[in-house]
Each structure stands twice: as structure tokens, then as C-alpha cells.
Simulated scan of single mutants.
Amino acid sequence: MPPQLQSPEIQAFATGFPLTLLHAGVTTLILFLGALAYVMLTPHREITLIREGNAAAAVSLGGVLVGLAIPLAVSLNASTSIIEIGVWGLSTVVVQLLVFRVVDLLLRGLPQRIQEGEVAAAALLVGAKLATAIILAAAVAG
């Protein structure tokens, strides 16, 4: 084997890169499942609305993705194993989904307003979701 391929840097990359891909893949799967759960919990069908050109639904769902990704990213950073990533990742998604639902309930009439394409209502909802995500991420980081 050539000496360049035996360098500590190459060996570290060869060992670490597959693990990095695995950790990122598990976290992305949790993000996808969390977003799917959110879509199932909402009274309107975001994907259908987005396909019909509803900007408010796109803004709202985009906020959900970012709102879930923030604490997941911190969980990924704080975790050292696949099990830890799964436990922290799933727990942050569950908490975030519960908080999203509470926010949706407190801001009455938002699902209908989003269905009607009211971007201002979606932007307020996204702000609440992102604020929650930042606080949850800070809690996970300790």
C-alpha cells in the first residue's frame, strides 16, 4: 500500500466518513418521519395545497422542516452513538410536534387561514415554530 494511503488523515477519514454518513442518514430519517407525522396531524393537506400553488402552506411546511431540523442538528452534535441519536432525535421530534400542536391550537383559525393562502398567518406560525425549535435545541445542548 502506498505511504499516502497509510497516513493518519486518510485512515481517520476512512474510519470516520462512513460513520458520519450513518449518523446523518439516521438523523435525516428522523426528520422525514417527524415531518410526516406533522403532516398527518394537521387538518389540511399541505402537500396537496402546495401542489395547487398555496404559498402559505409551503411557508408553513418549510417552517416545520426547519423547526424540526434545528433541535435534530443539536441532538446529532450532542450524541456519540446511533442509539443516542435515535433517543435524542425522537424525543426532540415528539416534544416539537406537541409544541407545534399547542401553537396551532392557540393561534385559532390558522389551518383555515393557511388553506385560504394567507401568508401572514403562515409566517406567524413559522416564527412560533422556530422560536420553539431554538429553545428546545438549547435545552438539548445543555
Rank of each mutant, 00 (worst) to 15 (best):
I85G: 09
Y38L: 01
V64Q: 07
S81E: 02
R45D: 04
S81Y: 07
A37M: 10
L41V: 11
I83K: 14
V87L: 14
Q96A: 15
L36I: 00
P43G: 15
G34P: 02
A55F: 03
P71D: 13
S79E: 03
S91C: 10
S75H: 10
E46D: 14
H44K: 13
L36M: 08
V64A: 14
V66R: 04
W88G: 01
A57S: 09
A78E: 11
V87H: 13
G62S: 13
A55Y: 04
T80I: 00
G34F: 06
V74D: 03
Q96V: 02
E84L: 01
V74M: 11
T48D: 05
T92F: 10
L49D: 01
V39H: 01
I83D: 11
A78H: 08
T42Q: 08
G89A: 14
V87W: 14
Y38D: 02
A56N: 03
L41H: 15
L49E: 00
A69H: 06
T48Y: 10
L36Y: 12
S79T: 12
L49F: 02
G89T: 13
L65F: 13
G89L: 11
R45E: 06
L68R: 04
S60D: 01
V59C: 01
I70G: 07
I83C: 02
T48N: 04
A69C: 06
L36K: 06
L61Q: 06
L41Q: 15
E46L: 10
I50R: 11
P71S: 15
A78P: 03
V93Y: 03
A73M: 08
T92C: 06
G62R: 03
I82C: 01
Y38A: 01
G63Q: 05
T92S: 13
A69F: 12
L41P: 00
L33C: 10
I50G: 01
N77V: 09
A73I: 05
Y38T: 02
L90Y: 13
S79I: 09
I82E: 05
A55N: 09
S91D: 06
S75I: 08
R45W: 05
S75P: 01
L90V: 15
A58F: 04
T48F: 11
V39K: 08
